[in-house]
Design a protein around this nucleic acid. Structure first.
Lengths: 214, 214
DNA sequence: CCACGTCAGGATGTACACATCTTGCGAACA
DNA sequence: TGTTCGCAAGATGTGTACATCCTGACGTGG
């Protein structure tokens, strides 16, 4: 396996663990321990941690450890304000073409969201959130926009899971289902601008619900 | 000096060299040579090159070297489409307050742009472009937006300098002066939304002029 | 003369030993 | 008994030797 492939794999693995709160904010990630787990030496692992540090997910403190960062309210507000705009832009900035495969996929999301509603579970919700995000990324035709969206998404989704204890999980899943249904309708109409508007609306409402409990 | 400070210093230095075309696309950056120049070993230098690679400014090829990347037309089109939108957003997304110091500074930019018009010079133009960008960054109140703007700016400004041989330098400087004057007017009126619109317009026109010669 | 295999040179990638820094425990002293 | 100093342990940062890999030059055989 090439070095770059392995780097990418480790990066995504650690990013997922951080964003799924397997490593909650404040957690110390020992370089040696992680290197041993993945079967590499500290050197390539530090390359991965450096990238995570550049993106603000961890913070390396000399003599102390590599700490998972927290997200403060002010930063979250700014990021969400921008994410709202970007969600809308994803519908107008050279969107990807809608195919029948896209429609089929969004239908599967409706189904699995209803499954989730029948058996609410925090971790399953987190997983679903991740999958849905990956799907929406596929709708973006502008690579620069997709890259920026991804960066901001992973910078802030943790807050969501952290706060979910204070939120009504069933209500969140219901809101999710509503978003997916609306997006499905817009996709079937082939109206990507409408998709962008819908997603913007739901980003906004999500943030409102989140702010209320923080 | 702390390790992080030095890292930041080297990062900005190399990024500037790349974006000022001191290292043109295709140039090989030898790790050992750079490490010797900056008086460090390869290890911390590789940390810097890794960050530049993550941002797409260089590409490390095993056994070959670390190569300064080029920017292809398609990518440039997508980035500029997004930069247009972000320029406009910078006027509406919690803009920074306008102070008398801001007004004074933009006046100085008008002056130095006129100096530049009297003695057109490619490198001075590049320098001026960098300084003006730094100033506009200060007008952005949303940190996330500022970070994204910076990333995209440094990803693509090189194209500008590469093409300037095929552009009319005097016309470019004139367009620049026009933008700055208009921004000054809007700033004096305290209308940040207008500043955003003006900057968007000039990003758009810049791209049109650039596309015409590539 | 061309095609191809071989190999040497030099570059990045990796591993490890050591330097440096922070923290907390514990002993000594007021 | 409380406080303070010192130090040991453990973490990240750095330097260096070595592994791995690409490229181009060279030589050889057709």
């Amino acid at each position: 396996m090439s070095a770059e492939t392995r780097h990418e794999r480790l990066y995504h693995e650690l990013r997922n663990r951080i964003c799924m709160l397997d490593y909650p904010p404040g957690e110390k990630l020992g370089e040696e321990a992680l290197a041993a787990e993945f079967g590499v030496s500290r050197t390539p692992l530090r390359r991965v941690l450096g990238r995570l540090a550049d993106e603000g997910l961890v913070e390396a403190r000399h003599g102390v450890g590599t700490i998972v960062t927290d997200v403060d309210a002010r930063e979250m507000g700014q990021v969400y304000a921008l994410r709202e705009e970007l969600a809308q832009l994803s519908g107008t900035l050279t969107p990807a073409p809608v195919t029948s495969a896209t429609i089929a996929e969004v239908r599967r999301f409706i189904h699995s969201c209803e499954m989730l509603a029948e058996a609410p579970d925090r971790r399953a919700f987190a997983r679903f959130n991740m999958d849905w995000f990956a799907f929406t990324q596929g709708l973006i035709g502008n690579e620069a926009l997709a890259e920026v969206s991804e960066r901001l998404h992973f910078r802030t989704t943790r807050i969501w899971l952290q706060a979910i204890g204070r939120l009504d999980l069933n209500a969140e899943i219901a809101a999710f289902r509503e978003e997916i249904r609306q997006v499905a309708t817009a996709l079937e109409a082939g109206d990507m601008a409408a998709v962008g508007m819908i997603r913007r609306a739901h980003v906004s409402m999500s943030y409102r619900r989140l702010s209320a409990v923080m």
